[in-house]
Amino acid sequence: MSSLAGSESKQEGPARGRPRSEVVERAIVECVVKLLEEGVPLAELSIERIARTAGVGKATIYRRWSGKEALFVDVVRTAEPPDPELPGTSMRDDLVALLEQLRRRGLMTRSSVLLHNVHAQMKSSPKIWAAYHATVIEPRRRRQIEILRRGQASGELRTDIDIELMNDMFVGPMLVRAMMRQDADLPEGMSEQLVDAVLDGLRPVSSPPA
């Protein structure tokens, strides 16, 4: 066992517990990234192999992650740009911030061979993809829906269109560009352009004069 596992057991005291935990977690995540960079497929990365390479016991990993799927999701989240802090100044600004994160994630996926390969492999593994969807994609979607609900409540958005469909109208074009069309441009200002164009069609329609 390496000094990493030894240092985890030798250090004592609750004040140091959290920083020590973060060091170990980071070392394990970095170990998985290193193995992936070496070309080891996700399917061949067992907890036992990860623990052996990181120099920790399997119990150390299981104390932090429920299994391989949860660990891989954290690895991908570490490689991706973080979810944005919403400005909260307006519904439009919040939507722009969300789409801008998607745009940057698309650029990063294109420039990172590792991230591109991991995303492709995740989709071929139902368990890992389900874990990623439940812990990353679905919370993002709920956040988007909540912004649109506030827009409807404040009178900024129409209420005669299904809110899930409305969300797809905003997010769909950026997802297509960022994730499905690797040859498509993702220029700065695209997020603002998309939000403004969709908002033009989703603002409440004024009643015609009698």
Results as ranks from 00 to 15, higher is better:
K10A: 08
I28N: 00
V76P: 03
P204W: 07
A59E: 15
D168I: 09
G189H: 03
G201Q: 05
Q11R: 10
N167I: 07
D74M: 04
G106Q: 01
A5M: 02
R49A: 05
I145V: 05
R104V: 10
A15E: 12
S206A: 10
P139M: 05
V176M: 14
V32M: 07
T60N: 08
R181T: 14
E22N: 11
I137T: 12
R158H: 15
V136I: 14
A27W: 02
K127W: 13
P139F: 05
F170H: 00
F72D: 00
A178E: 04
K58D: 12
D185M: 03
L45D: 03
A5S: 01
G17R: 13
I50D: 00
L36Q: 08
A153I: 01
L202C: 15
L165Y: 11
S111V: 02
L107S: 11
Q144C: 15
D183M: 12
S21D: 06
G17C: 15
M1W: 06
I128L: 10
S21C: 08
P126V: 15
V198A: 10
L45R: 00
V56F: 01
V176Y: 13
A120M: 04
R92D: 13
L107Y: 13
N117H: 15
E100K: 03
K127H: 14
A130V: 10
L115F: 10
I163T: 03
G17D: 15
G189E: 06
K127R: 13
V118S: 05
Y132H: 01
L199P: 00
Q152A: 00
R92G: 14
L202Q: 11
R104C: 12
P173S: 12
A197V: 07
G13M: 10
V205C: 06
R64Y: 09
R103C: 02
I163L: 09
R177V: 06
P126L: 15
Q182R: 15
S2M: 08
A5D: 01
W65F: 09
R104S: 05
M122T: 03
E146I: 05
G88D: 14
G67K: 04
E44M: 08
R142D: 13
R141E: 09
H133D: 13
A131Y: 02
Q182C: 14
D185Y: 10
V198W: 06
G151Q: 01
G201L: 10
E85W: 11
V205T: 06
L4G: 02
P209W: 14
V40A: 07
G201H: 05
G172S: 04
G201C: 05
V29N: 00
Q144W: 14
S207C: 13
F72V: 02
L98N: 01
H133F: 14
R49N: 04
E69L: 06
R177D: 04
Y62N: 07
K123P: 04
E25F: 07
A70P: 04
P208H: 08
G6V: 03
M108F: 05
E138M: 09
V75F: 04
D196H: 09
G151W: 01
G172H: 08
P87G: 08
G189Q: 04
P87V: 08
P81H: 03
V113Q: 15
D74K: 02
P173M: 09
H116M: 14
V176T: 13
E164Y: 10
D160Y: 11
Q101L: 13
E146M: 12
R149M: 04
V29K: 00
P14H: 06
V171I: 10
E164P: 03
